[in-house]
């Protein structure tokens, strides 16, 4: 117990003194995960919205597939990205293995299905309310997608939050394609795993604390934004 207290005190000191190694890891984690979420959102939101408004043969099967991909095991994604980027793989020529870009690719694959599925659900609900009105105003089904995405923005923030949560907490895929190389691809989760196995609990605890604080801060910020948006509608009523 005394050891734990000592390690925790060391961890706090690392955080408060602005240990450069620790903050480098934190910044790389944020850079990788935020980039992955932005790229995934750019692909997944229009895709989810199009799935919600368009009707085509096999649509149900696509929706089931995307819902299933929400639970995609990270190590499987890691393996697929590893095989694709390895020297003998189809994308080996790009020499991306063990780089932050490889980690971003893996996280995009993990996050995109989550944002697609949640966007589809949000937009479909909104479309049920808007469809006739937009059609009456001369807006075609496909042209209604930007309107639905914009009007569903508060609910879609939650989809982005879910995606960010998945990305920032991910270990399996990023360790396989990133390699956990010091000062290159070491992120919070992979460092926690490594340092714990080495018995360096102070750094692991410091990163764990920051990870939890980040999760709480981001969730609180998004919740505040959503409540502010919804509250503005109620306040004037």
């Amino acid at each position: 117990m005394q050891d734990f207290a000592q390690e925790f005190s060391l961890a706090l000191r690392l955080i408060l003194t602005g240990d450069p190694d620790l903050w480098e890891i934190v910044l790389l984690s944020l850079q990788v995960s935020l980039t992955a979420v932005v790229i995934a959102a750019a692909i997944a939101m229009p895709l989810g919205a199009a799935l919600a408004v368009l009707r085509f043969p096999g649509r149900r099967a696509v929706i089931v597939l995307i819902n299933a991909l929400m639970g995609l095991p990270p190590v499987v994604v890691g393996l697929l990205v590893y095989l694709s980027l390895s020297r003998s793989g189809p994308l080996g020529v790009l020499q991306l293995l063990y780089t932050p870009t490889a980690m971003i690719i893996a996280q995009v694959l993990l996050v995109a299905p989550i944002i697609t599925a949640l966007t589809r659900q949000t937009v479909e609900t909104l479309d049920a309310e808007y469809a006739e009105q937009l059609r009456s105003l001369g807006v075609s089904r496909l042209a209604s997608v930007p309107t639905l995405l914009w009007d569903g923005r508060l609910a879609l923030l939650t989809a982005l939050l879910a995606g960010f949560g998945r990305a920032i907490a991910e270990v399996g895929a990023v360790i396989m394609v990133g390699g956990n190389i010091n000062h290159v691809t070491r992120v919070m989760t992979t460092t926690i795993a490594l340092e714990t196995s080495k018995g360096n609990l102070a750094l692991a605890l410091a990163l764990g604390t920051i990870l939890i604080a980040l999760a709480i801060t981001v969730t609180a910020a998004v919740s505040a934004l959503v409540e502010r948006g919804e509250g503005a509608e109620v306040r004037h009523a």
Binding site: E129, Y130, E132, Q133, R135, S136, L137, G138, T147, W150, D151, G152, L154, E233
Partner: peptide, 26 residues
């Protein structure tokens, strides 16, 4: 021809934006 017509529904379907934003949209 529908662009020369307009319809108002029993339950008004208002976009999730300001009053003037709804008019600006159209």
């Amino acid at each position: 021809l529908r662009t020369r017509q307009a319809m108002v529904f029993q339950r008004p379907v208002l976009l999730r934006r300001s009053v003037q934003g709804n008019l600006d949209f159209v």
